Amino acid sequence: MLSPSPAHDYDLVVVGASFAGAACALAAAQYGLRVCVLERKAAGSGSPGGCRRAGGRG
């Protein structure tokens, strides 16, 4: 069994960064949860979507 890595240890994973997903991630981060947002579309900066930490914790 694999042991969890601190680099991939989240309290909440939000799939989809639509308005509702982003609002959910922001609210959870404001409560101190470690949040990962997954989005399949490219980010506005032209970089591919992926996991981004919310709440300034990493």
Rank of each mutant, 00 (worst) to 15 (best):
Y31Q: 12
S47K: 14
L2E: 10
R34T: 04
A42P: 06
C51G: 13
R34L: 02
A7F: 14
S18C: 00
A20Q: 10
G56F: 01
L26I: 08
G58E: 15
K41L: 13
A27T: 06
Y10N: 06
S3G: 09
F19H: 14
G44T: 10
G46V: 13
S3F: 11
A43E: 12
S18V: 11
S45N: 15
A28L: 07
L2Q: 12
V37Q: 09
A29F: 07
D11T: 07
Y31N: 03
G16V: 11
P4R: 12
R40Q: 10
M1V: 11
G46L: 14
K41R: 15
A17Q: 08
A27K: 08
V15Q: 09
A22R: 03
H8L: 15
C24W: 05
R57E: 12
G56T: 04
A17K: 02
G49K: 00
P4N: 09
P48E: 04
G55A: 08
K41V: 08
V37G: 02
A42V: 13
F19G: 01
S5P: 03
G44Q: 07
G58R: 11
C51H: 04
R52N: 06
G32N: 09
L38A: 10
P48R: 11
V37E: 07
S5W: 11
V14K: 00
A20M: 09
A7R: 14
A17E: 07
V35P: 02
A54N: 03
K41A: 15
L26G: 01
G46S: 13
S45P: 05
C51R: 13
C24M: 14
V35E: 02
M1K: 12
A43K: 14
G50P: 05
L38T: 06
G16L: 05
R53D: 14
V15D: 03
G44D: 10
S5C: 14
L12F: 07
L26H: 03
C51N: 09
Q30K: 14
S47Y: 13
D9A: 15
K41F: 13
G49T: 08
L2V: 12
R34S: 03
P48K: 08
D9C: 09
C36Q: 06
H8I: 12
G44S: 10
C24A: 15
L12N: 00
G56A: 02
R40A: 09
R52C: 13
P4Q: 12
C36G: 10
S5H: 13
V14E: 07
A22N: 01
H8W: 14
P6Y: 02
S47A: 14
A43L: 12
A27Q: 10
G49H: 03
E39C: 04
